[in-house]
């Protein structure tokens, strides 16, 4: 009799233990938060393929939890969901770190290109400042126009950087640098033609 009672008690304990299996809600939330963090740090742009895979992992995680939820209480097992959420969280954190690094690299490259472009425009401006002020200034009037244009284009580079559109900023800065060099060559050619400046005349 006593043996029978022990068996029933043991079975009940088992049912209680098994019935306590809960979905790893907190870990899932942490994994989702890690993915959101990654997205906010540019993962969709700078690690697009890995970010898309993480979205897939989260979908698989939700499906696994839903599958277990559908099972009879005794047979539920959230162990694999826990594994998935842990790996999704770890991967999201890794992708976030990689994205931040790639974004920083893109920013650094854009800033460097911006600096090079600014220096080139400054050098061009300095050349214009040496241009004659007299009647020979006709030779560089059109070029001065271009230098003003280059100065205003530098603002576009800054606007792209402010918008964190680093690829656009880099291509703009590169183009400005090339154009500045072209304008500098034009000025030098013009200066070579006109020689020293002469006194200004009324026109």
């Amino acid at each position: 009799m006593l043996r029978k009672a022990s068996l029933v008690s043991f079975a009940l304990t088992l049912v209680m233990i098994a019935g306590c299996a809960e979905p790893p809600t907190q870990q899932i939330q942490e994994a989702e938060k890690a993915l959101k963090d990654a997205q906010e740090n540019g993962a969709a742009t700078y690690s697009a393929d890995e970010y898309a895979k993480l979205e897939g992992t989260l979908a698989a995680l939700r499906k696994e939890v839903a599958d277990q939820d559908e099972k009879f209480t005794l047979f539920r097992d959230y162990g694999k969901a826990q594994q998935l959420s842990a790996s999704a969280k770890a991967d999201s954190e890794r992708v976030k770190a990689a994205s931040v690094q790639k974004k920083e690299e893109a920013k650094a490259a854009a800033l460097q290109a911006q600096q090079v472009a600014e220096e080139a425009v400054k050098a061009t401006q300095d050349l214009v400042a040496k241009a004659p002020v007299g009647k020979d200034r006709a030779a560089v009037e059109a070029i001065k126009n271009d230098v003003e244009g280059l100065k205003s284009l530098l603002k576009q580079v800054q606007a792209s950087i402010d918008k964190e559109d680093y690829p656009a900023a880099q291509t703009q800065a590169k183009a400005i640098h090339d154009m500045s060099q072209g304008v500098s060559t034009e000025i030098q050619t013009a200066l070579a033609k006109v020689g020293k400046g002469k006194p200004a005349k009324k026109k």
Binding site: G56, T57, A59, K63
Partner: peptide, 22 residues
């Protein structure tokens, strides 16, 4: 594809990662 065709890639890769996990 992740940059040039994000929708198509997302559709494929989400399914792929999902099934791989399964």
């Amino acid at each position: 594809a992740p940059e040039a065709a994000p929708e198509e890639y997302r559709q494929f890769v989400r399914q792929w990662v999902f099934l791989k996990a399964r």
